[in-house]
Amino acid sequence: MTREIMTPLNDETILSLRAGRMVYLSGPVYTARDAAHKKLVELINAGLPSPFPFEGQAVFYAGPCPAPPGKIIGSVGPTTSSRMDAYSPLLIEHGLKIMIGKGERGEAVQQAVARFKGVYLTAVGGAAALTARCVKEARLIAFEELGAEAVRMLTVEKLPLYVAIDANGLLPE
């Protein structure tokens, strides 16, 4: 049985996730990739509020295709997470708990995940028409000028993910 978890995640749930396991995630996730991360870090450094709450929440490194008529969203899937490595530790320090992307992370991210008890999950890259089916609602939240890179809140249902760095900073064996 694959475990099902719901965002926002509490500390107890996060601590119980083990590297290498598959989970189905439901609830809100916020899309943000390179350009949005740059802006989020600028806001933090300027002492300004983030356009969405960080505590217990999930950031999904994704830039969806435009929604065709009659669809909630176009194809959507993870982008390469390591491009966000320069920004992630600061976001984690400010309460971000869950990151969803693809590929390996740098040491600084791994350490921040362990120190602040977060989790890094990976989605299957390039299965984007399938992943779009998990999205039940999509809403523009911030940085509309970034186009595909804008921050959107997606309400997902049973998004299949793998635990790639757990709260102990461990990787799959």
């Binding site: 830039g63 176009g74 194809s75 899937g77 890259g125 984007a128 028409a129």
Partner: peptide, 17 residues
């Protein structure tokens, strides 16, 4: 499965087009 959905529903196979 993704490839079948893409062609049947006229959706891009991957979001990075």
């Amino acid at each position: 499965e993704n490839a079948s959905i893409a062609v049947n529903e006229h959706m891009p196979i991957c979001q990075d087009t």
